[in-house]
């Protein structure tokens, strides 16, 4: 009897675990690649995977907020490149590391604010505003750099992007810290609840006394500032700010967030889900290479795995009536 209760509790818990499908696919994938090539579990490779995941995940945390409010931000890839370039150029003038970083983040803040104002005040669809912003910032990148990377960077800048603590790269530690803060704020603060309620029903949220406009604007600022941070860290790692940095990141990030279970229509989502989504994207890419699967086949397989993982969760939700 007791045993049965326990069993049903466990199965209930599993039923309620939103991203079970992704976790299962991740585990199967890791076991498969581990068998084929044990290098997958080597320290170097794990760090490589975690580092790649971190750039996507840092932006993904903020994009989770954006998507939960029912918004979208496609400008993060371009902002990432431009913030890296601005910071790198500032550092090259001999400015201190802190000033260089702050100026890069300030750029992100301004872009995010403009995105937010256009979406909220002028009521232009977020897709159009941020798509336009993607082109504008892309243009700025090219105007400023003429297509050449900003290179080389001062030692302190490199140390930030290349350094590590106890063998764990700085970027991974920063991503971890931001994840904890991001998850806490989203779940346990009034601001987090506002974010959810705007995505659930904007009008109800407004009537409940939430400053809908300010909250909505703030998530775009968060997204751009996070993208700037990722861009600055990446420039440090590569000892150069590349005009092509962040190329395609907007899609990867949004994909990671949605794979992680955040609704495209707002109202639900979690940072933990985004972490799993981002991990899945990087692990697939890394695993296919380690399993010596030809690059010609990789895209096709990535697509199948993503649809399978998300499909599994959708099927479960429907079957057990969750969400």
């Amino acid at each position: 009897m007791n045993n049965n209760v326990k069993k049903s509790k466990l199965s209930q818990l599993l039923q309620r675990f939103d991203q079970l499908g992704i976790v299962l696919v991740l585990i199967v994938l890791m076991v498969a690649v581990g068998f084929k090539n044990s290098v997958f579990f080597s320290r170097d490779n794990i760090i490589n995977v975690l580092r790649s995941t971190s750039y996507v995940f840092i932006i993904g945390i903020a994009i989770t907020y954006v998507l939960i409010t029912g918004g979208l931000d496609l400008s993060v890839g371009s902002v990432m490149a431009m913030a890296g370039i601005i910071s790198a150029m500032t550092a090259q003038t001999g400015a201190s590391l802190l000033i260089s970083i702050l100026i890069g983040l300030l750029f992100g803040f301004v872009v995010g604010l403009i995105n937010g104002i256009l979406v909220v005040k002028l009521n232009i669809p977020a897709l159009i505003v941020t798509l336009g912003m993607m082109y504008i910032v892309d243009g700025l990148v090219l105007i400023v750099t003429k297509g050449s990377p900003v290179y080389p960077l001062p030692e302190s800048f490199k140390a930030l992007g290349q350094g590590s603590v106890l063998g764990i790269p700085n970027i991974v530690l920063i991503a971890l810290a931001l994840a904890l803060i991001g998850a806490f704020v989203l779940r346990n603060t009034r601001y987090g609840r506002c974010v959810y309620s705007i995505g659930g029903n904007r009008e109800t949220a407004r009537l409940a006394g939430i400053n809908v406009n300010l909250t909505q604007m703030s998530v775009y600022v968060l997204a751009s500032v996070s993208a700037s941070l990722a861009g600055i860290l990446m420039a440090g790692r590569l000892n150069s700010a590349q005009p092509s940095a962040g190329n395609g990141y907007e899609l990867t990030v949004v994909a990671a967030v949605i794979i992680g279970g955040t609704s495209m229509f707002g109202g639900s989502g979690s940072i933990f889900g985004t972490l799993l989504g981002a991990l899945l994207m990087t692990v697939i890419e890394n695993a296919l290479l380690l399993m010596k699967i030809s690059a010609y086949w990789q895209s096709l397989i990535v697509g199948i795995i993503i649809i399978f993982a998300v499909g599994l969760d959708q099927y479960r939700r429907k079957k057990y009536g969750i969400g």
Partner: peptide, 19 residues
């Protein structure tokens, strides 16, 4: 493939030398 992205080239290189 690197997608003409230095960061991707770095990550792919790491996986390539492991494989």
């Amino acid at each position: 493939t690197s997608n003409s992205d230095t960061a991707q080239a770095a990550d792919k290189t790491s996986a390539i030398i492991d494989t």
